[in-house]
Simulated scan of single mutants.
Amino acid sequence: MKKFIVLLFLVFYSKTSSQSAEKSIVLKDIDSNLPIEDATVLIIKTKQILLSNSEGTVSFVLKGASNIQISHSSYLGVILRSTTIKENSTVIYLKSSVHDLDEIILTKKHPQKILKSLVENSIKKLTVPARLKVYSREFFKLNGVCTYYNDGLLNFQIDNRSKNFNSDILVEQNRCYGLIDNDISNELLGYNLNDIMENYYNFKYLNPLLEPDAKKEYEFLIKAYSANENYYLMTVNPIDGAKGLLDDFNIIYDNEKKIIIEVSSDVSASTIAGLKEKTTLGSKNIYKSLFKTIYRFDDTNYYLVSSREEIGFERIDNKKSTDIEVKNYFVTTGFSDQNFSFNENEVFKDKTLFNKKNVILSPYWNVSGLTFTDEEQEIINKIEMNH
């Protein structure tokens, strides 16, 4: 009888394990064999959204089988069945669509006017009300050493658009590790969660390109993707001789729906090299600055999928200089167009998670939608041990 019970348990355990398994895929460029970062992976069955990390890796737990949709603005999308993914990492190769980006679009309107209408239309099209379950992650590096880390699982309830924009934040879980130097202001740490969604949903980071003088400082150019006839790429780059800390922008948009799909910007090495070094007390010499947001349109809804921001600068102090780097990630793991119920005292009012007491109910980071790289995991383990 005992043998029968044990056998029955093993059969049941085997079936349960087979129905719920951890999957891992690595996305690579078919030509260069390099990893592909910021690819969006949608689990059709659960509607979970995932993002590939800098190693091209995406990990998730799935019960049963599901179709998996992989998309990236610079690659041809694919759909695969989860049953084709092995228990260990399965490498998926994507074909680049950027190689076919050779057709320049000539328009009667100046591209700046097109961009302005794209921003206006995108704001109108973004789904509101909306509930976004978001995973937030931040690394803080001081003088070359990563000394602080935080992440959290947040819910954003977005109620209005544009000038009347409003969002309420509820923090489900969070953790913060590390000791910050007394000379480092808390203002340097993390997203300002109170206005971050307003910036993303009103495309405020594109405001410098919409100013009248922008045409004197930037060159606007529009190109077409032959692999995706609906997608256009607008590049906005500082003209030769332009002065100041001006970014290079890439804006991918759906020319049929007139909505923005992706925005990325960075300050080029040549621009940074041309800046005059600041020496006054408290001034900052920026040596790295990049930004990227991805939006998704799924036939009925249009919403923010992810953002990534990195900044590095040297701060001039009294008798020394301090090197500071901040890297932030923001990933929407779940979306709904339904409101959720909450009490006013549950709403998160602070700017960052820095001063919030740790609330860890489950290993939420394992289903965050953004897999840790080996380097990131090592950093977190080290900071956590020394905390």
Rank of each mutant, 00 (worst) to 15 (best):
L80W: 00
L80T: 10
R81P: 05
R81Y: 11
T83F: 05
T84L: 10
T84Q: 09
T84H: 04
K86Y: 02
K86I: 01
K86Q: 13
E87N: 13
N88M: 09
S89C: 11
S89K: 14
S89F: 07
T90V: 12
V91A: 12
V91S: 10
I92S: 03
I92M: 04
Y93T: 09
Y93Q: 13
L94H: 04
K95Q: 15
K95R: 13
K95D: 13
K95L: 12
K95Y: 11
S96P: 07
S97Q: 10
V98E: 14
H99F: 13
D100E: 15
L101E: 07
L101W: 05
E103N: 15
E103S: 14
I104W: 02
I105K: 06
T107D: 06
K108F: 02
K108E: 11
K108N: 09
K109W: 00
K109P: 04
K109L: 12
K109F: 04
H110C: 07
H110D: 13
P111N: 07
K113V: 00
S117M: 12
S117Y: 12
S117L: 12
L118Y: 05
L118F: 10
L118C: 06
V119T: 00
V119S: 02
E120L: 06
N121W: 08
N121A: 05
S122W: 01
I123T: 03
K124H: 05
K124D: 06
L126G: 01
T127S: 12
V128E: 02
P129M: 01
P129K: 05
P129V: 02
A130Q: 02
A130V: 06
R131I: 05
